[in-house]
Design a protein around this nucleic acid. Structure first.
Length: 198
DNA sequence: CGCTAGATGAGA
DNA sequence: CTCATCTAGCGA
C-alpha cells in the first residue's frame, strides 16, 4: 500500500516534488509523520533560495545527488530540513514545513516539551525538534540512510492546494507552498478560517 | 483571539 | 547586516 520513494522522484523540478511530497510519510528514527506542508525553492532565478546569496549552497547543489538532506540553522536556533531536487527542468530544494504526527508521539512530545498534538510538528523548526533532526544530518542521504524512510501512498490526496511561501522577504508572490487544505497540522492555513466568536 | 519583542548564531 | 522561526506576554 505504500511505496518507498526512489532517487528519480527527486530528479524533477522542485515545485513538482514539493507538491507530490504532500501526503507522503516521513520516518526518522522511531518517529513518523505525514507530510502536510512543503515549500519549493529554485536554485536559479529565485531570490528567496539560499543559492541566490550563498556560494556554499550553490556548491551543495553541484556536489550532491538528488534527494540529499540540506539542513541549516535559522535565526541562530532553529534547524530547517530540506531535500535537494536535481536533474529535472530546474534544480532546487523542498523545505518540509509541517507533519501530521503518526508514530513515536510520546518521544516527539518529550523533545518538544509539549503535549498538544496540533502544536507538535506544525512548523519547519518544530518538526526538526520533534524528530531530532539537526545539523549533524546535513548532507546525509535519506534514500540510503537506515534512520530514514520516505514513502508515498498509492492514492494522491485531492485536497492539495498551492499558496504563497511564508517567512521570506524576497519573491513573496511565488505560489510555491503546498499544503493539505483543512488539515489541522499545517503551520498556517491557506485561507484563515473564521471560527465562531465567543 | 491577535500582535509584538526578543532570543541567538551562521554566512557573506 | 540579514535571516525559509518560535514563544511568551500583553491587550481586547
Amino acid at each position: 500500500m505504500e511505496k518507498r520513494l526512489t532517487r528519480d522522484f527527486f530528479q524533477r523540478d522542485p515545485v513538482v516534488c514539493a507538491s507530490e511530497l504532500i501526503g507522503c510519510r516521513l520516518t526518522f528514527g522511531k518517529c513518523r509523520g505525514m507530510i502536510v506542508e512543503t515549500e519549493a525553492y529554485a536554485a536559479d532565478g529565485d531570490p528567496a533560495c539560499h543559492t541566490w546569496r550563498r556560494p556554499s549552497a550553490r556548491e551543495f547543489v553541484s556536489i550532491n545527488q538528488a534527494g540529499t538532506a540540506y539542513v541549516y540553522l535559522n535565526y541562530g536556533m532553529h534547524w530547517l530540513f530540506n531535500l535537494l531536487t536535481k536533474g529535472g527542468t530546474r534544480d532546487g530544494f523542498v523545505l518540509i514545513r509541517a507533519l501530521e504526527p503518526l508514530k513515536g508521539i510520546e518521544k516527539m512530545q518529550r523533545r518538544r516539551g509539549c503535549e498538544n498534538l496540533t502544536n507538535l510538528c506544525n512548523g519547519p523548526a518544530k518538526l526538526t525538534q520533534a524528530l531530532g533532526i539537526t545539523g549533524q544530518h546535513h548532507s546525509l542521504d535519506p534514500l540510503s540512510h537506515p534512520n530514514w524512510v520516505l514513502e508515498k501512498t498509492t492514492e494522491p490526496d485531492p485536497s492539495i492546494v498551492a499558496s504563497t511561501r511564508i517567512g521570506i522577504s524576497q519573491a513573496v508572490d511565488y505560489p510555491w507552498r503546498f499544503l493539505l487544505e483543512g488539515n489541522l497540522h499545517v503551520s498556517v492555513p491557506h485561507k484563515p478560517l473564521s471560527r465562531r466568536a465567543s
